[in-house]
Design a protein around this nucleic acid. Structure first.
Lengths: 179, 179
DNA sequence: GGGGACATGTAATTGGTTACATGATTAC
DNA sequence: GTAATCATGTAACCAATTACATGTCCCC
């Protein structure tokens, strides 16, 4: 999934208006930058690729004498992005690599409320499932709490529980809002 | 750090006895495999590289007519591994990418108790620090809980709190043991 | 005798980062 | 005038995965 992440994130950032490659770099920094920040060396080539695929349209704009190429997302690009966004996070992605999920989560606001809620519910359910299955694993291993071999497992247990509870609180918030 | 991870992990897995490349593949699967599992295509070349660097020594062993190359870690290899292991996890690594840390954590048992404890304490302190600083960030943003733009931040808050509390419980366990 | 595990290795491909190259504009 | 920021792009490099290539052993 990782390799697609840049590509879809760029489409995601273009969802709220046309931007240059330079803008995108800053946008990454100011949004999902703390866990994912691509370099110019990947942004510009991807933009070109997106244009070739018909996902974006580049237009040279002159700001004074300084020229910049602004990219607008097409409806095909939007569909492609939304299609990716709607794919629920898979169990194995949740397993331990959170970065990709965090990026996806950030863009959930572009989904209709119902879809968003369904995906959050699914994420919550998976978190609880993972939590319970790791609890089972914990029972099977005999290492004491001070043995580092069980730490990654314990880390998983505490984080899945925390995620699940937090996702539950989001669900509750939606319910209270009554949308 | 990511690229070094494979290399040090291989040294780490060789810490408790000589192994072939094939063994290592299985070992990854059975230990840190759920969050990090390299392919043969990276294991074998790294083994060769390690041998060139004097970190491991490969010896052809014949099991019947089937030959396998078993690698033994050298004292230089051990030192190199331990040196890496002793480097505390940096703040930015803790930020959101947990995989690398989990791998490192798994190998902490090769460190003397005192060092291990100090590193756990440091990790705990950083988790609390991150937790408090994210709490500050939360105060500054005005998005309601139902806005997906704050979710990555919230995710960070709940996970840092969970990690910190859990690391604290490890410390307590050590104290109770009175080592 | 065939499938599956054991065992090693490499070549092709992918995809990213770093560093380089270039040049305009703005603020001091 | 010079440093910082704006702005775009590419070439060299690096590291990893996939797929391929090869062959043994063991059990059914």
């Amino acid at each position: 999934m990782k390799q697609d992440l840049v590509q879809y994130s760029i489409l995601g950032l273009l969802m709220d208006g046309k931007k240059s490659g330079y803008d995108l770099k800053n946008d990454f920094k100011n949004s999902v930058g703390s866990f994912y920040a691509p370099s110019f060396g990947s942004i510009y080539p991807i933009l070109k690729k997106h244009e070739k695929n018909g996902y974006v349209i580049g237009k040279d704009e002159a700001v004074g004498k300084r020229k910049r190429t602004e990219y607008t997302i097409t409806s095909l690009g939007k569909d492609t992005f939304l299609k990716w966004l709607k794919v629920p996070v898979a169990q194995h992605e949740l397993q331990y690599s959170c970065d990709d999920i965090l990026v996806k989560l950030y863009f959930y606001r572009y989904l209709p409320l119902k879809t968003r809620l369904a995906l959050i519910k699914k994420l919550k359910d998976m978190s609880f499932e993972n939590y319970y299955s790791l609890i089972e694993c914990q029972k099977e291993i005999s290492f004491p709490i001070t043995d580092s071999r069980r730490w990654p497992l314990d880390w998983g247990v505490v984080s899945f529980y925390a995620y699940a509870k937090w996702l539950e609180s989001i669900e509750d918030a939606y319910k209270k809002r009554g949308d």
